[in-house]
Design a protein around this nucleic acid. Sequence first.
RNA 1: GGCCCCUUCGUCUAAUCGGUGAGGACACCAGCCUUUCAAGCUGGCAGCAGGGGUUCAAAUCCCCUAGGGGUCACCA
Length: 493
Amino acid sequence: MTVRVRFAPSPTGELHIGGVRTALFNWLFARNQGGKMILRIDDTDLQRSKEKYLQSILDSMEWLGLDWDEGPRKGGQFGPYHQIQRLDLYQHEVNKLLEGGNAYHCFCTPEELARQKKQDAQRGLPPRYRGTCRYLTEKEVEERKKDGQSFVIRLKVPQEGETVVEDLVRNRVTFENKIFDDFIIVKSDGIPTYNLASTLDDARMEITHVIRAEEHLSNTPRQVIICKILGLDTPIYAHVPMILAPDHSKLSKRHGATSVQEYRDMGILPDALINYLALLGWSPGGDKEIMPLEEMISLFSLDKVSKNASIYDLKKLTWLNSHYLRTKEKAVAGKMAVPFLKEKGIVSEVGSEDEQRYLDEVVDLVREKVKTLQEVADAAIYFFREDFPYDEADVAKHFSREDIVPVLEKIAGVLGEVEPFQKETIKAALKTLGSSLKLKLSKINLPIRLAITGRTMGPDLLDVMALLGRDRVVERVKRAKQFCLDGKNEELI
RNA sequence: GGCCCCUUCGUCUAAUCGGUGAGGACACCAGCCUUUCAAGCUGGCAGCAGGGGUUCAAAUCCCCUAGGGGUCACCA
């Protein structure tokens, strides 16, 4: 039997990291087992499902490299893969349930149900449907229908015995049937609810393993009951732990970045996000942390998935990101940085190959000290523009020296003579200057750095200079000298 | 409230059948390196929720308590 798993998002919002982690575990399991990954769209919520979310979710999946074997943009033999296009299939099964006396029409109004729920709450009882419509006669049902009363369809849930969920993560979980009420399987708009549609599709699509978040565990016995009544085989379940926000509550927008798109905009790399999320709730055992995708696939197994919920930690993700950022091929990193440089108005177009090559070098240099593509762009500004500002605190510290003007002048003079303008030659020239002026190297280098980058931190200064080239460096040092001169003048006045 | 799940450093986690100085990573702190630094290197801090059992021996098995999370929707 070949493994078939599915990820079934509902297009009611962006793909968030919890969803990604679920998708990832499904994907890793499928790839590890040589199975199929199915993407199904659970869009039975007419009000909240939106086309833009669907597209965004698919884009996010593709960006992450979580590809699927069957589903939207792809097709497959078990389609359609949008639940909204499978209504007739559900209808068929619902009729069977109705005919077999395992389901019934319920005409109770939402208002009435709300009232009962409130009563239950007041009495400290669990909210529970009372089975009001369970024994309506066929005639009564027909009359009410003819009357135009709206109705839902409920499953007649057996109250005897217990239902067992076999779970690869939680092991065997047992529920007593008497705790279940007759839950709704078809809404008044004629569309099945999650418990029905999902169960039916999982069976119809021959899903072998249902891997999903733990929030679904409590719902699972209802799905098992449906299978039992319909004579369907239950899939093997694996309820993976949830991802919680730093305050231990369920992840929501108020916790900051939660959607894949937001991480992408921040300059997080897909590899980093994948690696980080893989480590949340799963460990290959031992000390392994940083893993290429291939290794994750070969190491992945559901019995190493932990049972307890985990709290996501942006700092570790960022740290992983810096690792992936640095180990990417130079040209690849350069390409990835382009949108961020454009976004900040640092570059407009990268036309020629030379321009791209230069950009690649800049990114290569700058990425050593930063953690995201966003920060790469921030750190790269002075490589592309002359109008960068000087950091005020640094100016106060390094441009306020008595000898700053003559020193900058000497520096400009010396650097102007360096030929060829390369790391070693520049280094030698500055060393010579330092000893002739009896100045510590830092007394020379810091002002240069500030003059040519506007700040006192960054990559290796010699690398920066070599990449900028003699003309720009000398020009900037001269400009800094003028800046200091103006400052002095102001002080004199 | 009923039901279900969970509980190892602040966070993510490791620890084949019970025997470990309870290991690693991020974060944090310190030192080193260096022309700077938010980088790198080295080191440090820090944990078995609590209480009972079982056992020669418990983070590991059992029970209880506490805490956290989930679910009980005409949302998925």
